[in-house]
Design a protein around this nucleic acid. Structure first.
Lengths: 355, 355
DNA sequence: CTGAAAGCGCTTACAG
DNA sequence: CTGAAAGCGCTTACAG
């Protein structure tokens, strides 16, 4: 049994370099390089010959050498942060696809909720010279504190960084204020008055996702003449089914008059659904439920969970387009909202009989 | 409003190189390099001085230059293939963590079910010279056909490649044959005889995940004296809730006598659960259900879905350990099963009254 | 249109 | 223990 590993030395021998192609084709490495980079100043003849050899030898240029010389940086690095990995992962997948279509490679770093993504980014910048950065989730406080040390084009997805006013940081997200407000209005219009909100963590930074959604919730209440201070029950919660489950149980144990729950993520909503069931209630007969994100999963729970659908395809697409453009051209950063949609399904009961 | 992008030129000016550190410290770049690489042959004095400057300047070596010189390759590349991204993503996350802890960077490529992961890998090998490859999911046929062209240490997770006998391809997975068998036995022991299996795609390659699980299912039946040809209803299905839903509806419409469904992934099981409900049945009273993977989600559905729990932490950990070891030392590839566990929850009804 | 040569930022024998 | 120098595989003015 031949189990010897190929040594580094042997592997190297197998790797073609630009020199091999030059020798084989009879041209100089300069000319080969020009063909590789698709420059106009090469004869058709030379180009064809060299392309043929490249094809035949299965040669691909070494990107390290390439990037060393070029001022351009290397791969785009994506930082995925936070517990709600299901949602962010689905965006990540699309981001990778769009980037790959544009021939860009993607480096990924998964961070924990407590990690400081900007510090990590700074380290990556100095070590790897990425050409661009993409933050999937992030704490605006971290950006406020440390982002000025970062100079590569960057995009924050799922967060609104306009007020931070960095000229190399764009941001794309759902209008969380309006999203939170719309979901709440839906519940209110269905006659609910005692509503529990199972949200994410609040922060002292302006425009943080959960803060914005909560503000929307409050304003929706006030427009209905309700006082949030008095009637609103808000609890902070990690974006996971487990935490959604536990928080919901706690709430239901304490507040017997709750008739609706608004969870700031579908994954939490799924936990809430089970918790409501375990407390002997049912959705929507006893308690109504609405989630956030619009994950496919909400189509298949019993009952289907109403939710605020974020457009992950647009979030990914716009972000990648903006990033790639700004990597190549000096354009100002932008801050855009991607439209959302309230998906009314089977988890909300109309208490008032009138809508 | 100052919105001018920092140009490549300006950015370069800001980037420290080893030369800057050498000048600042009064030592040569050779000595700085030795400190950087933690070599023993440097005086404490030089080391301290240089480290101090490095710290102060926030210098980090450029990896491209580093890798260009070193025979070692660059980042480990992970290929994530297939529709069941939820499950594979949770492994990916852990893989990235373990690799990061070992100071390795991770490149990620998400592939569609129909993509040939080995062809993609080959391309990446030639372009980027990765030091190792990790396949999350994959079709053994593709490996059989093309893997011999790949010489870097690699690991296949969620697939058993022992019979392919490549000396640079290890594999770690759940024993799918035993997993399928155990789940099936559970249903049989609970008195079920008309069982539908909603599996993945079958392949003509030996040891393909779904083939193995199905074989386990068949053998479990035969041990009970049942003829799989006659009584088993197997349908192929993409690993998604949507497909699980649709396939289950089709099956229930045709086979009125089904009393249990075994889905080859939890995500499909969730779709199946909803389908069963939409057909007017309930789980487990009318129809029992068991999934596969052991995702957290199965804890929060109504009812909780019994499942075959795969140990994603061990899958990730063992794979990374093996890969890193083989990157540095000439060790033979290995093929290991990671123990699974049948999680009995609320979705299986005992028909026979005796277990 | 093409080649010879300098240089990107590092590492590593080779001297001393 | 330290420095000077060659070289990793490319790109890109500079000549011709």
């Amino acid at each position: 049994m031949e189990n010897r590993q190929i040594t580094a030395w042997e592997r190297r021998r197998l790797m073609k370099t630009i020199k091999d192609i030059a020798d084989l084709s009879g041209y100089s490495i300069g000319t080969v390089s020009r063909v590789l980079n698709d420059r106009p100043d090469v004869s058709e003849e030379a180009k064809n010959k060299i392309l043929e050899i490249i094809e035949q030898e299965g040669y691909e240029p070494n990107t390290h050498a390439r990037h060393l010389k070029q001022t351009k940086g290397s791969a785009v690095t994506v930082f995925v942060k936070g517990a709600d990995s299901t949602f962010l992962n689905s965006i990540l997948e699309k981001i990778q696809r769009y980037l790959y279509e544009n021939n860009e490679e993607v480096r990924v770093v998964f961070l924990k909720e407590a990690d400081n993504e900007v510090e990590y980014a700074l380290k990556v910048c100095q070590e790897r010279r990425p050409k661009g950065l993409l933050f999937l989730g992030g704490d605006l406080n971290n950006f406020k504190k440390g982002f000025r040390h970062i100079s590569v084009p960057s995009v924050l997805i799922t967060g609104f960084a306009e007020k931070l006013d960095f000229d190399n940081l764009s941001s794309f997200c759902t209008d969380d204020y309006e999203g939170g407000k719309a979901a709440m209005k839906n519940l209110l219009e269905n006659g609910h008055r005692n509503i529990a909100v199972i949200g994410g963590f609040l922060s002292d930074a302006e425009d943080q996702v959960s803060n914005n959604r909560l503000q929307g919730v409050r304003d929706a209440m006030q427009e209905k003449g309700l006082d949030p201070e008095e009637t609103l029950c808000y609890v902070q919660c990690r974006f996971s089914s487990r935490d959604g489950y536990e928080k919901t149980r706690e709430i239901l144990a304490e507040h017997k008059d709750i008739t609706a729950v608004f969870a700031f993520s579908d994954i939490t909503a799924v936990g809430a659904l089970r918790a409501i069931c375990d407390c002997g209630y049912s959705v929507p007969e006893d308690i109504s439920l609405i989630g956030y994100d619009g994950m496919e999963l909400t189509e298949y729970t019993v009952p289907r969970i109403s939710t605020v659908r974020q457009d992950i395809d647009q979030l990914a697409k716009k972000s990648v387009e903006d990033l790639l453009f700004r990597i190549s051209y000096p354009r100002a950063s932008v801050h855009r909202f991607i439209p959302f949609e309230v998906m009314d399904k089977e988890s909300i009961r109309n208490l008032s009989g009138q809508k």
